[in-house]
Design a binder for these strands. Structure first.
Length: 426
RNA sequence: GUGGAAUUAGCUCAGUUGGUUAGAGCGCUAGUUUGUGGCACUAGAGGUCAUGGGUUCGAUUCCCAUAUUCCACCCCA
């Protein structure tokens, strides 16, 4: 029988797990500081949640979803992202009647049937936030600031922040029309992809990298110039807020975002260390989404961060997210009789809240020492027949060999005291 | 979905112009006379050389297919 991971999935092994736990903990802490509450939503939803939420025209919905029929004949889809499910929950649970804004964060796995590449997996992890009910640019800035705080707290240098405004339903059609007119006499000379984009979504032509298309693209009308007054005010308000927070950013007109629900503010944090999958984090405003999905007319904004990409970025910047916490104490026995004693003591120590290890491999004295050393256990107590008889033992600090006498009957208390004192000295 | 590269021990990689028992370093287990670890030394375990077919007296090596990973497009986190 052949064992193998399904394509595009990964095990997170014990030697990596501390990175994930640290990232998860810091993200939850930072979100809490900004007043966001965690929400947990199901791994799968009715398929139409994503068709309506993410958008029928997107690649994600058209060719990347894990969709299947369950035994009850329902069409079910493994979530390809978090926003649609959170919006569904917001509507279904009447969160519109909670104090506004409703600020939520989540830590999820998501699934997309895509061709594999570095930083792109079929099952992947996202940290995300969604905020409902506020339409002002301040909350856009607050969410971007949350991300900056997260990156700083975790110790990675500021990645590049790019922002853009893609307008709203009242000004986007005008821009769309302007693009169509601009490209009408040029599209014949452009690449095949652009010919297709011209029909489906001319905005996508803006970030084409083909050499033959570039001259046309650089001269093309820019979204920013076609924003309506409200969108213009919103965008400049966002920039003012970011500046007042000393957050550096660049306006990148080529950011379009592939999901249909975005309006006005869109942004990305980009890295050069994750292959072509440079976007660590992407998000934006979705003022019509809740209403589109059958809820009240409530504006929203959110982002999702690719945790795998984030961890790659951290690693490439040489950031050590946390050290593994080894067990504190190793109890070493010398004989069958003392082994029984050591076992009892370990039980007592653990119940008193002190982590410890005992030999479970039938190892010799010397081999037990080597084991403790390999695992980096900082303290050790030898319990032999002499110690059992006298009721006294020595606790040893492995780092420098310093020892102290302790009473076995008071082991948990005295060991804790010694280890605490040692911590202060060091 | 289109194009290209790679796959040998748990990990990082040698190697075989087709020829008996396929190697190293690291890691793992044990030991260096059984009351003190790190260093060093010795020994051991661990590979159907990704999988399935083909060519051949003989394939880990050549050919084809499949799988997986990586790279470029596409798209996105």
């Amino acid at each position: 029988m052949k064992l193998s991971l399904p394509k595009g999935t990964k095990d997170i092994l014990p030697n990596q797990i501390h990175l994930w736990q640290k990232a998860e903990r810091v993200f939850a802490e930072v979100c809490a500081q900004y007043g966001f509450s965690e929400i947990r939503i199901p791994t799968f939803e009715h398929t139409d949640i994503f068709e309506r939420g993410v958008g029928n025209a997107t690649d994600v919905v058209r060719k990347e979803m894990y969709t299947f029929e369950d035994k009850g004949g329902r069409s079910i889809t493994l979530r390809p992202e978090g926003t649609a499910g959170v919006v569904r929950s917001f509507i279904e649970n009447g969160m519109g009647s909670m104090p506004s804004p409703v600020k939520l964060f989540y830590n999820i796995t998501a699934f997309r049937y895509e061709k594999m590449q570095k930083g792109r997996y079929r099952e992947f992890h996202q940290f995300g936030v969604e905020a409902f009910g506020s339409s002002g640019p301040e909350i856009d800035a607050e969410i971007i600031s949350l991300l900056c705080t997260f990156f700083e707290r975790v110790g990675i240098a500021q990645t590049r922040l790019c922002i853009n405004s893609i307008g709203c339903p009242s000004c986007r059609p005008i821009y769309h029309q302007a693009l169509v007119e601009y490209f009408s006499d040029k599209v014949a000379a452009m690449c095949d992809d652009c010919k297709a984009r011209y029909e489906i979504n001319p905005q996508r032509m803006i970030d084409c990298k083909e050499q033959r298309c570039k001259p046309f693209v650089t001269e093309a009308p820019r979204q920013i110039e076609y924003l309506c007054q409200d969108c213009r005010t919103h965008f400049s308000g966002l920039q003012a807020s970011l500046s007042s927070l000393d957050i550096t950013y660049e306006v990148d007109p080529s950011i379009v975002r592939g999901l249909d629900y975005y309006s006005r503010t869109v942004f990305e944090f980009v890295s050069d260390h994750v292959g072509t999958q440079g976007t660590i984090c992407g998000g934006g405003r979705y003022d019509r989404l809740v209403e589109t999905m059958g809820g009240p007319s409530v504006p929203g904004i959110g982002f999702a961060m690719g945790v795998e990409r984030f961890l790659m970025e951290a690693e490439s910047q040489g950031v050590v997210l946390s050290e593994r916490e080894p067990v504190k104490l190793c109890l070493v026995h010398m004989s069958d009789a003392s082994y029984q004693k050591v076992f009892q003591l370990a039980h007592r120590l653990r119940r008193a809240g002190i982590s410890c290890e005992v030999d479970l491999m039938g190892r010799s004295f010397r081999a037990q020492m080597k084991y403790a050393n390999k695992l980096g256990i900082p303290y050790m107590i030898v319990i032999g027949d002499d110690e059992v008889a006298s009721g006294k033992a020595k606790i040893k600090r492995m780092k420098d060999g310093f020892e102290m006498d302790i009473e076995i009957s008071d082991l948990p208390e005295q060991a804790a005291l010694f280890m605490n004192e040692s911590k202060k000295e060091i």
